[in-house]
Computed example of a mutant assay.
Amino acid sequence: MKRALRFLPVFFLWTPPAWAGHAVAGARTRSLGGGGDLDISLGRIIISLVICIVIAGLAALLIKQRGGKFDLKAWLARIEPRTGEIRIVETRRLSLHADISVVRHGDREYLLLLQQNNAQILRERAFPQPLDAEQGSPCD
């Protein structure tokens, strides 16, 4: 009982907001800065809390699964940009709104006319693959 009575004065230091107007008769309570209430619903607060707890739980499971070790180099190697097969060989500006480009994709080469709202293939041809050193020159 003495233990419970020891915390009794602390209970009276906190007053609920509903009682704040009754603490001093005739006193008006004003918020700092003069702004209004926040208008955040209790449902949004609870949903935010649940989402944060789920994210923390998933992070804890990930750390436990990996044994606390995280290989940053392997993770960065996975998201490293791939070398594409499309290569822009040459580009020339024809006018303010038009370019002409030679583009190579695999064993095909394309001549493209690129305009402001349009792109056209002007010419398409097979591009010969370079010879390997083992094959020798074609004149042999």
Rank of each mutant, 00 (worst) to 15 (best):
E85I: 05
S101F: 02
K73D: 11
T91Q: 09
A74N: 09
V50E: 07
I86D: 01
P138Y: 05
V103G: 03
R104M: 06
T29G: 05
T83S: 09
Y110M: 10
K69L: 04
Q65V: 04
L58V: 11
W75H: 06
A133T: 14
D37R: 14
A77R: 15
D140A: 12
F11Q: 11
L94I: 15
G36L: 10
G84H: 08
P16K: 06
F12N: 08
A25R: 10
N118E: 13
A18K: 14
T15H: 06
P81Y: 03
P138G: 07
F7H: 13
H22S: 13
F11I: 13
G35V: 08
Q116C: 03
P81L: 09
F11W: 10
P130M: 02
C139L: 15
V102R: 01
I51S: 08
Q65L: 11
I121S: 06
I63N: 11
E90H: 07
G68F: 04
G67R: 06
C139P: 01
P138R: 13
P81R: 15
S95V: 02
R92L: 05
P130H: 07
I46V: 13
H22V: 02
L42S: 14
V89T: 06
A18V: 06
S95C: 02
T91N: 03
L38H: 15
G33A: 13
A18G: 07
W14C: 12
A56F: 08
G68M: 07
A4I: 10
A59V: 12
R3F: 06
V10Y: 11
S48E: 09
R108T: 08
I79K: 11
R3Y: 05
D140Y: 05
W75C: 03
G34M: 05
A74F: 04
E80P: 00
I40K: 11
I100P: 01
H105V: 10
I88C: 13
L13D: 12
E90C: 00
D107T: 13
I40Q: 10
I45N: 04
G43N: 12
D37C: 03
R3M: 04
G57F: 05
W19P: 00
L122D: 03
A133H: 10
R93G: 02
V102Y: 04
S31Q: 14
R28M: 02
K2F: 07
P9Y: 04
D99C: 05
Y110H: 07
F127D: 06
D140K: 12
V103I: 15
P9G: 08
R28W: 00
I88S: 03
V50K: 08
A98P: 00
E134A: 14
D132I: 02
A119D: 02
A18P: 01
V10Q: 15
L131N: 08
L94R: 15
I47Y: 04
L38N: 15
I100H: 00
L8E: 14
K64S: 12
V89M: 01
G84F: 03
R125K: 15
L58N: 10
I45M: 14
A59L: 15
A60W: 07
V24L: 10
P17H: 03
L8M: 12
G57C: 04
T15L: 08
K73C: 00
G26R: 08
G21F: 02
L122V: 15
I79F: 10
R6V: 00
R78C: 03
C139M: 04
G34T: 06
R6C: 00
L94M: 08
D37A: 15
I47C: 10
